[in-house]
Structure formats: C-alpha cells, structure tokens
C-alpha cells in the first residue's frame, strides 16, 4: 500500500479486532476493506449495501455472471487487482 491505512482512521474497536484476526489468517487485510472502513462517516453503510447488491448473485445475474462483468470492467481499466 502506498498509504498506510491500517493505522489511524476512525474505525470502531470491533473492526480493529476483526482486522487483527484477518491479518493473522491472510497476512494482509484486503485493500477494499481497509478503504471502506478508514473513514466510516464518509463511506457509510448504504455504500457497502449498494456495492454488495450486484455481486450477491440474488438478482437477475448469477454470481458467476457478476464475476465475469467484474473481470471485464477490471480488464478495461487495465487493473490487475
């Protein structure tokens, strides 16, 4: 990470505790999770709800189709993440 988002920020203690567990298991807390929790008041819960909607596989698109769209968009953006 070019910016250390693990320290500072305004995360509630429960999230910080969860981060320790995830870091121990994966070696790293996924970047999107770090970003989404760094300033909870700027990126409030409705965004997390909205972003998970399309990927949930419950709507008209299956989980696999959603993953395919995601890969297509990431490819257009030349992003390897």
């Amino acid at each position: 990470m070019r910016i250390d988002l693990m320290s500072g920020g305004r995360r509630p203690w429960l999230i910080r505790l969860l981060f320790k567990v995830v870091e121990r298991k994966l070696g790293v807390v996924p970047g999107p999770v770090q970003v989404m929790t760094y300033r909870p008041r700027m990126l409030p819960r409705p965004l997390r709800r909205y972003l998970s909607r399309g990927m949930s596989g419950v709507g008209p698109w299956s989980g696999s189709e959603a993953e395919l769209f995601a890969a297509f968009i990431s490819n257009l953006n030349t992003c390897h993440f």
Partner: peptide
C-alpha cells in the same frame, strides 16, 4: 444491477491502482 457492478469495479479499480493494494 449490471451498472451497479460496473460502478463497484470502476471505483475499486481506481482506488486499488492509486493506493496499490497489497495482495
């Protein structure tokens, strides 16, 4: 829903590239 997914990844791709997310 397709637009939702496109928005999701347009946003996350930019943040991943700017911050250089660790894998």
């Amino acid at each position: 829903d397709a637009a939702n997914i496109a928005f999701h990844f347009n946003l996350m791709n930019r943040l991943a590239d700017a911050f250089d997310f660790d894998l």
